[in-house]
Amino acid sequence: MEIENPSNPTQTSAPVPQFPALSAVEATGGVEKRKIIIPPHRLNPLKERWLEIYTPLVEQLMLQVKVNQAKKTITLRTSPQTTETGALQKGADFVQAFILGFEVRDALALLRVDDLYIDSFTIQDVKDLHGDHLSRAIGRIAGRDGAVKYAIENATKTRIVLADNHIHILGSFTHIGMARNAICSLILGSPPSQVYGRLQGTAAAANQRF
């Protein structure tokens, strides 16, 4: 048996073999599926924007997609053409973001950027409010014509959806934390001007660190 001598400059090592990438089906040993429930109030928006949702799932992530209107579900599954092992989770996060109320253009960021997440909570998770107190808290978060919500989004580089007493925030981990702190302060009764002033200082400090 011939043994390679590293001190011999005339002897060259064997070339590193190159193997084609495994498909997601081959890598996981079988077809994977995700089933997402469509709330009744999001069924019509889904139909209206379906082509914008379907196209990246099939052409970019190489997933198979099936909609069951009777059961109000969307099923995603890997195919032999799916090469990215995280494609199914990305596709499910993208669809779920739209179901929660985010615009398609904002939800698409989940397919392009790896460190984006969605954080969801309710106003009652912060303070037990009901009736007029709950309505006033929602009003402080939104502001007139959505001005406060837009200001928080711009300062923290996030996207926010207000759905009754549910709040969904799309962004990076750090930016979600800033937006959530601002929203919690509003829920607890802080005036929007005061919250926005603190938020601008926090956002400026975060931008200097990064």
Rank of each mutant, 00 (worst) to 15 (best):
T122R: 12
P56L: 07
L46I: 04
R77W: 08
D106S: 13
K90R: 14
D93H: 08
A147D: 04
G146H: 01
H41I: 08
D106H: 11
T156P: 04
I37Y: 09
Q124F: 02
N44E: 13
A87G: 01
A147T: 08
I36S: 00
L116E: 04
Q81E: 13
I74M: 01
I36H: 01
G91D: 09
K72D: 12
A92C: 02
L100A: 10
L88W: 00
I118M: 08
Q64H: 15
G86Y: 07
Y54P: 02
R136P: 01
R112W: 02
L116M: 10
S79Q: 07
E84Q: 12
R77L: 05
A163C: 12
D132N: 11
E52W: 08
E103R: 13
V95G: 06
D145I: 06
A155Q: 12
T82L: 00
D145R: 14
E103K: 15
R140G: 03
Q124V: 07
K72S: 15
T55D: 12
D106I: 07
R49F: 10
D125P: 05
G86W: 04
I152N: 08
Y54H: 14
Q96S: 14
P40K: 03
G91H: 08
D119Y: 12
D106V: 11
Q64V: 08
T158S: 10
S79C: 07
I118H: 10
K66Q: 15
R112M: 08
V126Y: 01
Y54Q: 11
R144P: 09
Q124C: 05
L162W: 07
R112D: 14
K157C: 10
P40W: 05
Y54S: 10
R112L: 09
L76Y: 06
T83H: 09
T83N: 07
I74N: 03
I53G: 03
E52C: 04
R136E: 04
A97I: 00
L51P: 01
V67Q: 11
V113C: 11
T122G: 11
A97G: 09
E32C: 03
R136D: 03
K157T: 14
L129C: 03
I160S: 07
R49A: 11
G139W: 00
D164F: 15
K47V: 11
E84A: 13
I123T: 05
F94S: 09
P45F: 03
D106A: 12
Q124D: 13
K149F: 01
A107Y: 00
R136H: 07
R112E: 13
D93Y: 02
I141C: 08
L134M: 15
K127F: 06
D114I: 00
A163W: 11
I38T: 00
R112Q: 13
L162S: 09
